[in-house]
Design a binder for these strands. Sequence first.
DNA 1: CTTACCTGTTCTGCTCAGCCGAATGGCGTT
DNA 2: AACGCCATTCGGCTGAGCAGAACAGGTAAG
Lengths: 253, 253
Amino acid sequence: MAEPKHPVSTVDRTFEIVEVIRELDGAGVSEIADRVDVGKSAVHNHLNTLASREYVVKEGDEYHVGLAFLGLGAYARQRNDIYRVARPEVDQLAEETGELVNLLVEKNGLGVYLYRSRGDRGVELDTYVGKQVHLHSTALGKAILGYRPESEVEAVLDEHGMPRQTESTTTDPGEFFEELETVREQGYAVDDEERLTGLRCIAAPVTDDDERSIAAISVSCPVHRVSDDRFFGDLRDAVLGSANVVELEHNYS
Amino acid sequence: MAEPKHPVSTVDRTFEIVEVIRELDGAGVSEIADRVDVGKSAVHNHLNTLASREYVVKEGDEYHVGLAFLGLGAYARQRNDIYRVARPEVDQLAEETGELVNLLVEKNGLGVYLYRSRGDRGVELDTYVGKQVHLHSTALGKAILGYRPESEVEAVLDEHGMPRQTESTTTDPGEFFEELETVREQGYAVDDEERLTGLRCIAAPVTDDDERSIAAISVSCPVHRVSDDRFFGDLRDAVLGSANVVELEHNYS
DNA sequence: CTTACCTGTTCTGCTCAGCCGAATGGCGTT
DNA sequence: AACGCCATTCGGCTGAGCAGAACAGGTAAG
């Protein structure tokens, strides 16, 4: 659903306001009014309406995103089958490897992080649960697209493009399709500093009965700390194992 | 913020729609229109506007709460200091005790669950992260109110009342203040089937430098499975210990 | 202390956004 | 084939939400 036939502009404005607050990490009425390009009074009315339901909270004279969204967000995630079965597995994988483990699903051609679990040495990243990312520049995304029909991959690339993130990002569709071929052959996907310099990830898809991907699980670690031996050895096996467990539990229960 | 001076009714309607979808666990246009008391076309316009931003998703001909809320919700929680320091401690407590462990904060006179962790024997409950509850009928709420000035407790009771939840719920303010006195003496609060029949909880407050509560941690378990010995022994000590750790980490780091 | 300049908030009147109701179209069921 | 039950579209009317200006409170500078 890209463009509704009869959009309710007030709804758009409301969420623009909330999203601006998040981007600015808290903001006042005037600041928001500038960004959203509506008058202060309108912004004020919106904020107070939102505040009455705790969707935003006023702290001093800054407005912040409220915890009411937490209820809806947690509910939306909980409804997700994959999340329910994958979560314990992701936790265990993080504990075993000590690294950062991620669970990603695809929504409208973009990846959405559903869950993350950090082992005791796991890196801190710019990603967070709920964040949307392009699929072409992460191991997770490649694992997902590798197990989708070619036509669908093309549609995704058409819609969202292949923006360059680092020097190593693949930005050529032809090359990308070759990579996906490799992913299918190997059963896993790798991202070597393609989204973030200094970070490499290895990801495995979770597929349904028809070999269509429904999610992906990855381990992320700093390049300087992990040898190829461990990366393509223990880590690879662990990720593949976990994805397989999730797959089985999801499809046969 | 109870009643804004100039409410934006479209905003209210939008969130009413989303909340109805959650209550019904997915719903169609007509179904929602009945509940919210607006025409089908209006509901339709709202839904499609929301869907264009992934705040709702259309599955077949049912609309569901979308994962876009997850980003905002997770962000709102992450901003919360208490959450950041308490989370690992809550996880550990759940693992040690095997029971359900909860983290609650107060927002506008109501309790909001910030986090929950279920041990291997932990009960399933009607609570979920983000849910709001009255403070007078839970161990968590009593732990929080016990470490707030009397005037504030009165304000909370005035605003939200003391609705009865079970036979054991305290509904008399005088009696309630005596209970809070006991909480302060003991340093922990107990809920013996006051919110839910068959469930008992024990909670400890997390306070700031001025002995003012900022959150509470509890362990919940079925009455039939836990002896008084364990409840007022190991469980009590574990909860108090965890709350204390969180308190120290929060105040001195 | 005064002045100036930020904020957030209130108020009023105008305009167009959003609503209702009716019509349309798509599916399944009888 | 004809009905019933949906979601969706459309047009025309009405009041909701907007801009802009005025007000209030707080802070910094003169």
